[in-house]
């Protein structure tokens, strides 16, 4: 009899632990079973100013992907940003633009895509050509000072 209550309580404990884990995965991390396949595109920027891996990629303010990794091309002195775009967001035309913006004043950097008009669409491995790097405050102040001086 004693052993049986022990068994029942251990069973309930293990079940509770597993349910807790399931709750964490489903409710807290919000796993979604929708189509999550992505394709990879890249873009070259003259300055990414601290853009990080896993930063958001958004179109019209909606997150449609993440930065997967960032390389530096020492030959041209440019940063090559690789992005994973969700397929369910729909196709992006080849003349889509990309710029690096900042969330709020002290927020983190993210990539904002500007819609294009071309009929052809970007596919896995394609590159965005129309890019604009991050605005670096020091450079802006530098420009201002030289302009004021002249």
């Amino acid at each position: 009899m004693r052993m049986r209550t022990v068994e029942i309580s251990v069973g309930a404990f293990v079940l509770a632990g597993i349910l807790a884990l399931v709750f964490l995965v489903v409710r807290v991390s919000g796993i979604n079973f929708e189509d999550s396949s992505t394709y990879s595109i890249s873009a070259r920027f003259d300055d990414v100013a601290g853009l990080k891996r896993r930063a958001k990629v958004s179109l019209a303010g909606v997150v449609i992907g993440r930065v997967s990794h960032i390389q530096v091309d020492t030959e041209y002195g440019e940063a090559v940003v690789h992005m994973e775009i969700e397929r369910r967001a729909g196709p992006l035309s080849t003349d889509t633009g990309a710029q690096i913006l900042t969330e709020g004043i002290i927020g983190s950097r993210y990539v904002s895509l500007l819609p294009g008009a071309d009929e052809e669409v970007l596919d896995d491995g394609d590159e965005i050509l129309d890019t604009q790097g991050a605005l670096v405050l020091e450079n802006l102040i530098g420009d201002l000072v030289t302009n004021l001086g002249s």
Binding site: F13, A16, I18, F23
Partner: peptide, 16 residues
């Protein structure tokens, strides 16, 4: 080995 990870999962859920 079995109990502590399960307790941790329960801890997290109850704390949330």
């Amino acid at each position: 080995f079995i109990s502590l990870p399960l307790l941790t999962a329960i801890f997290n859920v109850v704390a949330i």
